[in-house]
């Protein structure tokens, strides 16, 4: 009973703070007599969806790039982390490199990726992937290595195999780490896809933004940002859902939060 009212209160607060911001935005524009090309009201932003641009197509393109790049990042990030965890020498050798690579502002790599991979949907997927896989790799590697040595002794005293240690202890133990990396990666994957579209693309919401910017169609730019945000939020929602399913009702959920 208490739990239900607690969560109702939590959701009410979440909705309330967002409503307040939207209302404040509206009155800021109206009362401040802000010109349309500087900032539209929330209503004008929403209305721009009925404009002449192909919103559906461009949103689908960007969604495809984000989800594609992200899926690739999860698969490659986790796979590399597993390889690292299986060979201490490889990981000792490569992990410092991974950490320094992670320090590069990856968005700045965008133009270089365009040179390497050319324009279009595929290259944008690759950019989204390149930008978002490092945090997954790093957190997963850490998770896989965090096994109590005595637990390994216990398994080894029963002649447990490397594979058993991996499937029964390491992998399930690293799930909270994998998900924390995956959550960070969502925002990066979205940024990666948009950067790709900014730099060179003929479709997608990032491309659309640059087109309408020329005409100072600010409501359409706001709409594009809103849609990009929604793509990110949807992906984040999916990740949270998966986390709820796989990282079950144990203490790790509270620790991770």
């Amino acid at each position: 009973m208490n739990n239900i009212s607690d969560s109702a209160r939590k959701w009410a607060l979440i909705i309330l703070v967002h409503v307040i911001v939207v209302v404040a935005w509206h009155y800021f524009v109206v009362l401040g007599e802000v010109p349309l090309y500087v900032m539209p009201t929330p209503g004008q932003t929403i209305m721009s969806i009925f404009g002449e641009y192909n919103w559906l197509h461009n949103t689908m393109i960007t969604t495809g790039e984000v989800f594609g790049g992200y899926a690739l990042a999860v698969v490659v990030g986790v796979t590399l982390a597993v390889l690292f965890s299986w060979n201490a020498t490889v990981s000792e050798f490569l992990m410092p490199l991974v950490v320094s690579l992670n320090m590069i502002p990856k968005v700045a790599m965008g133009p270089i990726f365009i040179v390497w991979f050319d324009y279009g949907l595929g290259p944008n997927i690759i950019i989204a992937f390149m930008i978002s896989f490092l945090p997954i790799l790093i957190t997963t590697t850490r998770g896989l290595m965090e096994v109590e040595p005595e637990l390994l002794d216990l398994v080894k005293s029963l002649k447990g195999s490397r594979w058993q240690i991996f499937t029964k202890i390491q992998l399930p133990g690293s799930l909270p780490y994998i998900f924390s990396g995956m959550k960070v990666a969502v925002v990066l994957a979205v940024a990666g896809a948009i950067v790709g579209e900014f730099i060179g693309s003929e479709e997608g919401l990032g491309y659309l933004m640059q087109q309408v910017q020329v005409d100072l169609d600010t409501p359409a730019m706001f709409m594009a940002v809103l849609l990009i945000t929604l793509i990110g939020v949807s992906l984040y929602g999916i990740v949270i859902l998966l986390e709820r399913i796989f990282v079950k009702s144990d203490s790790r959920m509270e620790n991770a939060a």
Binding site: D153, L154, Q164, K168, P172
Partner: peptide
């Protein structure tokens, strides 16, 4: 061989019964 350590080393994501079963699974 059965082993017990200072830390219980129970797997946090397994129910107690499934934790107890770990050596049986390994063997």
């Amino acid at each position: 061989v059965g082993m017990v350590f200072q830390q219980s080393l129970l797997l946090k994501w397994r129910k107690i019964i499934d934790n107890v079963l770990l050596p049986a699974e390994i063997l």
